[in-house]
Structure formats: structure tokens, C-alpha cells
Amino acid sequence: MKQSKLELYVGLFVLLGIAAIVYLTVKLGAKSLIGGDTYVMEARFTNAGGLNAGSSVLVAGVPVGRVEGIRVDGTDYSAMVTLRVEAGLKLPTDTMASIKTTGLIGDKYVALAPGADDSYLTAGSRITMTESSVDLESLIGKMAFGSVEKGKDSPPPAP
């Protein structure tokens, strides 16, 4: 095969390959890297089980940020969760943060329910109103128990 033709094909392949890599890294992998400005705040939970660094933060079901880190507060043994949220989004100080699950066995995420206060949360401030993870085991136990009572065919109630 002629060298020039060879180069053409290889060039096409390389373009295709680079496009695929860029697609994977940018579209799927590193969304947070290309976003705009963000700010950080903290939320205290009694139980952050199942939540990971990188989990989503949603307001009204729309992703607005990610969980940056989780650590244990040494004084009262509660979980301190650091949230990174888009700078454009102003949240009232009485915003409530709760840990929820997508579907039955899906990922955990932090849902923010904005309140009605006039003042807003700033970088580094702390969300005081929180709701911790639902205890899955007891929930499943309840559901399994309930479904047995109702009969085999009926679907389990949505959580």
C-alpha cells in the first residue's frame, strides 16, 4: 500500500480514537472539572452510610454539585459531609439536606430542599437541618414482610 494512503487511513483512525477518548473523559468522567465556579459548604449527618466522595448533590432532582469529602467529627461522632455546589446557585440558610437513594438499591445522593430565609449560605457555612440515610435493612424487612402479607404478585410499594 502507498505510504500516502496509509497515512490517510492512520490519520483518520487517530482522529476517531482521540474523539473517543475525549468523549469518555469529558462527557463521562470529568464533568466537574469543566464546570464553572463552585463553593464549599458543610452538612452534619448522624448517619452518612452509603454516601461517597463524588456522590451527587441535587436540588429539585437537578444535579448542582458533588460531595467532596466525608469525615467523622471527633466531638460528637457525627458525619461531616463537605458539599461543593455551583457558585451561581444561592441557597437560603434554612435549606435542608437529606441523604436519599435512587431507586431501591441505587446510589446515595444528597438532596437539598431550599427553605424560605432571606439570608443565603456562603462558602464554608454549615447546613444545620439534615436528614440522614434511611436504614435500608429495616426498610427492606418491612417491605418483604408487607409483600408476603399482600401476596406474591403485587409489586413492592415505592419507597
Binding site: L24, K27, L28, A30, D107
Partner: peptide
């Protein structure tokens, strides 16, 4: 998009 993280890629 939600599942795949930069670390995975």
C-alpha cells in the same frame, strides 16, 4: 454519565 467518574476513565 452519573456512574462513570474520572477515576474510572
Amino acid at each position: 454519565e452519573h456512574a462513570v467518574k474520572a477515576q474510572d476513565v
